[in-house]
Write a protein that binds this DNA or RNA. Structure first.
Length: 267
DNA sequence: CTGCCCCTGTAA
DNA sequence: TTACAGGGGCAG
């Protein structure tokens, strides 16, 4: 279920509970997840290494290992990373798991199996081709304005394009557009400067709230139940009353994905 | 831009 | 049984 806020929550959890531990061995259960790399190479490359630091870039997690290599995890739709007390207790939806030197397990769970795990060899720097981090100082209103004016995409496609902004996905893109009262189909470059400023602020506010919710949810025993913490204002509310104007929320399809919006508030 | 693919679970 | 799922890469 991860967009940037959930990935951030997972990253913080790893920083708290996994950094400093040594990976005795890594086991890839779902062989496809490392493609095009050989799963064995990933297993051998990580085994015996210590977890030094954890970085997040957009929705990507980088687990930096001693010696300079790094595990690169993308959770896609249904992935999750958890530290469990006993590595032997990993379950049926485990895509990969690492036995840590104190017996705990670092587990990559993913019922749908779309998530990926790769190894970046020491000395290589991976270019993710990502836009600015929306909660970093790089993401100023001015920077956002410049990106928007240079694009001819519909507003929602623009927000979800990782090359423009790193980490926004279907839920929070819809939420930000609703907050700022921007029609998701409107071409982003045609939006006025004041409106873009409003949208910029909405993106930051929505993500800050979501990061907070996700961190609370993920830090609870049992892991990620963020749906209980974060309830979207428009996402997945087709036919229900808009929380501002009571008109029914509409669902359309953009770029093959559902978009929810209020036809009255978002013109 | 559209559509198709990856894979599995869940809900209508 | 079908549609859809919070992601992303690819071909056309």
């Amino acid at each position: 279920m991860p967009e940037m806020p959930e990935v951030e929550a997972v990253s913080r959890l790893l920083r708290r509970h996994a950094v400093g531990a040594r990976i005795v061995c890594l086991r890839i259960e779902r062989l496809r997840i490392t493609a095009p790399q050989d799963p064995r190479d990933v297993e051998l490359g990580a085994s015996g290494r210590t977890i030094d630091t954890v970085d997040r870039r957009g929705k990507n997690i980088l687990v930096h290992l001693s010696g300079g290599s790094a595990l690169h995890v993308h959770l896609r739709m249904t992935g999750n990373l958890r530290v469990i007390q006993d590595a032997r207790l990993h379950n049926a939806v485990t895509s990969a798991w690492a036995l840590l030197d104190d017996g705990r397990g670092l587990v990559f769970e993913d019922p749908r199996g779309l998530g990926t795990l790769r190894l970046h060899p020491a000395g290589t720097t991976q270019d993710f081709g990502l836009g600015p981090e929306p909660l970093s100082p790089d993401f100023s209103a001015e920077a956002f304005h410049a990106l928007a004016k240079a694009s001819r995409q519909p507003a929602k496609s623009f927000l979800m394009d990782q090359r423009q902004i790193a980490g926004l996905g279907n839920i929070y893109a819809a939420e930000a557009l609703w907050q700022a009262r921007v029609n998701p189909a409107r071409m982003i470059s045609s939006i006025s400067r004041p409106k873009l400023r409003t949208l910029h602020a909405a993106i930051v506010r929505v993500l800050e709230d979501a990061v907070e919710s996700a961190c609370i949810a993920y830090s609870r025993p049992g892991g990620f139940r963020e749906a209980e913490e974060y309830s979207p204002s428009v996402y997945d509310r087709e036919g229900q009353a808009c929380l501002r104007c009571r008109r029914p929320i509409r669902r359309i399809v953009q770029a093959g994905r559902s978009t929810y919006y209020c036809p009255r508030c978002q013109r």
